[in-house]
Design a protein around this nucleic acid. Structure first.
Lengths: 331, 331
DNA sequence: TGTTTTATCGTAAACGTTTACAGTTGCGTA
DNA sequence: TACGCAACTGTAAACGTTTACGATAAAACA
């Protein structure tokens, strides 16, 4: 039988109330002698507090639930690092609930799990909520925040990079390097994808470039999506591509090399994310780099009612996957 | 105020016991009429069961805790997929606790968190336990299992690939391709590393190859460890390297390309893991591929007292990072 | 008809804590 | 000496469920 405070009380001839007080560090409510006896007994008995009982009586769990899915891309550990860091500072434990591969039932289940445990907040990392998810979350009185995803509804808390700006910057960068036939590969048709698409289109429009709709190749941010995007681009004469994620960029890159293209001369790539994947490929991928740790930290702030920054700036990291386009071609 | 079964009882003029029975699907203990009334009332009130209270009275949480750390390598999602799959079949929820970057205090904290919640089992993914961790786990009566890590102590449950065999196979493969000066890069000095080292050494010995101790370059399975290993190998005349992880292989590869070496002609690499990283690099990495999903599944079996396989076979996946060594050199 | 069985339900205790409130000391002060 | 007060401790209720046990009424049986 696991020891309880009752056992400690019996052993020390104190009441469970006193035991509870010293174990709860309610300073000033117990004597040094009581403290010593209780601590000693607790050690001897191998006592461990039953968090479940505490949560029941306090009607509150100092726990942040993080819901993630198996993103085909791989930035989540950085976000979680940031979340863990900030949560620790605010005295919150973090539990991660895994929602599978964007599978609706698993997402509901994860949200329900969190809700049934009186968590103090829910962080949804790169989760596209469906209608049920939204109802579930809004019906509960638990604060929640979307992380690395920005819903259109401004009443719903979120922390992410500015997707519009991010795509805009990357596209401008390619234009500045002489490219005019610029693809956008791997985006989905949800919030993040639409926002990036808009940024991309805005940059092209700003430079009077008439975009061919076929330059946009949808996908799910995965390696496979990148691979699939290559062949359309070859027939379209696209010289540079903005990849929706590092994984998409990697897929494009290996597909291109499979076709014996030389990078970046035959195809320039800018990828979005800037994870370690960018260093691994040959050539290394120039990227718009997101500050995932900071996104995680601010997500915690947001959900815990602290002052928080909701749009996290990105930086353009030059590596080796973009070539200056020979201007002769375009004349 | 969140509604409780008491509210449902009041609304339906039934006792809380009956409400609890229908909500708990204790078939045969309640009438169809009672069921209808309770379900209706629950829906109207937006009732959600308080898992914390249930766990307290049942003294048991149908929850599996998975403790992971920020591995520099990236196989964990596959393991978690496998865990989640099997746990779902056994009616267990899964919560993931994050133990940071092999930081001892965070590991203890994660274990304590799990223990304080009466979880039905603990799965430690790629965690090297220190003495405190082991005491903590063994003092509790909660079943636990190390996953993707095989302690020497056979009394402690674990599920993993056979590290000795894995390194042996890979080394033999390189020998069969004519290599005799073979490095081993990125392994740590704990269980996994030692087991792989032994397999590597056994294969060399089996072919009467006198190994130079400097062929073994320690590390922590990271990209950086791979990069750091290159320069020693160049001066040693090593022609092939067994990398301790895909990330190590990637580091080795980009470092080699940074030195203008041509792969695989100038350096052959076999990596361990076989994640998607192997496809991303140029050339693609030949690997000893672990079945991480299966490792996850069997880990659940093990900890839930089901029949389980504890050693999961590996397969050698040929890609493009190993060259047949010109036999003239060795004559 | 009376008796037994069955189906259904309610009462109340229990799970391991926290905490409001009410004691009980012992000390300082008048 | 008596009083007030501070410091400490104990009693008991509460958190939201589950479940053993007993109660009730209807159905089945003789």
């Amino acid at each position: 039988m696991k020891p309880t405070i009752k056992d400690i009380a019996a052993k020390t001839n104190l009441s469970i109330a006193t035991v509870s007080r010293v174990l709860g560090h309610k300073q000033g409510t117990y004597s040094a002698k009581a403290e010593a006896k209780v601590l000693q007994a607790a050690r001897e008995l191998g006592y461990r507090k039953n968090t479940v009982a505490v949560e029941l009586v306090k009607k509150r769990a100092d726990v942040l639930a993080v819901i993630i899915n198996a993103t085909p891309t791989n930035f989540s550990t950085d976000i979680i690092d940031g979340i863990q860091e900030r949560a620790g500072q605010l005295g919150q434990q973090v539990i991660i609930l895994y929602a599978g591969n964007r599978e609706a039932p698993l997402q509901h289940q994860a949200i329900n799990t969190a809700l049934q445990r009186n968590v103090s907040g829910i962080l949804l990392v790169a989760i596209e909520p469906d209608a049920t998810d939204r109802e579930l979350l809004q019906a509960a009185q638990v604060p929640f925040c979307f992380v690395s995803l920005n819903l259109d509804d401004q009443n719903i808390k979120s922390v992410s990079s500015n997707n519009h700006d991010l795509a805009y910057q990357a596209t401008e960068y390619l234009i500045a390097h002489g490219h005019t036939r610029i693809g956008l590969a791997g985006i989905d048709d949800y919030h993040t994808g639409r926002q990036r698409l808009a940024g991309y289109q805005a940059a092209l429009a700003n430079h009077q470039i008439m975009a061919d709709p076929a330059w946009v190749q949808r996908g799910n941010y995965s390696y496979q999506a990148g691979q699939a995007a290559l062949s359309p681009y070859r027939s379209l004469g696209v010289t540079a591509v903005l990849a929706a994620s590092d994984m998409v960029a990697a897929g494009l890159l290996t597909a291109a090399q499979g076709q014996h293209l030389t990078l970046p001369q035959d195809l320039s790539i800018v990828s979005i994310d800037g994870t370690i994947i960018c260093d691994i490929t040959t050539p290394a991928l120039t990227s718009v780099t997101q500050d995932f740790r900071e996104i995680g930290r601010q997500g915690v702030n947001r959900v815990m009612g602290q002052a928080a920054q909701t749009i996290i700036p990105v930086t353009l990291t030059e590596r080796a996957s973009v070539a200056e386009l020979d201007q002769l071609e375009t004349k």
